[in-house]
Amino acid sequence: MSEKPPRVGLFVTCLVDLFRPTVGFAAAKLLEDAGCTVEVPRTQTCCGQPAYNSGDRGDARSIAARTVEAFEGYDYVVAPSGSCAAMLREHYPALFTDDPGMAAKAAKLAGRTYELVSFLTDVRGVTGVEARFPGSVTYHDSCSGLRELGIKHQPRALLATVDGLTLAEHADAEVCCGFGGTFCVKYPDISNTMVSEKADAVESTGADTLLAGDLGCLLNMAGKLKRRGAKTSIRHVAEVLAGMTEQPAIGESAEG
């Protein structure tokens, strides 16, 4: 009576591909542990948010069309990012309102796309992980995941099953870290004020490690914390859930 394992297309995300492959491998491991077959379509690049959020609808559409094509035929599409998953889920269909054929394909993709952690808990029914991570962590709720996809309790539920881990919530965990894609370089003064407040909140918990589900936010927060000389380590939540924490944390090197 063994059920055929679902075929999952892993949407790696451009940032994970370039900056933090460990997150991709952690995602693959978690998906495989949850009984899925994981494949990584070769023609994926980026979800297109930089274009979409800059008002460049034309390029956003072309990139979206490629992504739709690249992920045809999978049972599910999973991304280790709330922001990219929300782009595929919530925004792709709206890009093709004048092209019914593509709109239907985009809607089909949207219905099969999930953010990694919520996919594990909500679709695959995962209630715990086999991992050990001694120390205290604090968790930042990235905006798209939180508000567009309703991701709040899922990562906390799984983190609670990590051996040795304690969660210390920081104030305003739901407030934006100031990344916002191109926002952080277009409006550096505002972005800096926002990420400074986030860093204050994180540091004041005394937690050893800051976790989140989106690499964009993590790069931003890591950049600020490291610039300030904070002792906090920064990692993607998937690394901890998969027990893949041998790599130096984000913004750190093996030499320290």
Binding site: D17, L18, V40, L219, A222, Q247
Partner: peptide
Amino acid sequence: HRDMPAPEGRTFR
């Protein structure tokens, strides 16, 4: 205002 974390090494792909 902040450091830029460097890539780990080779790409995921």
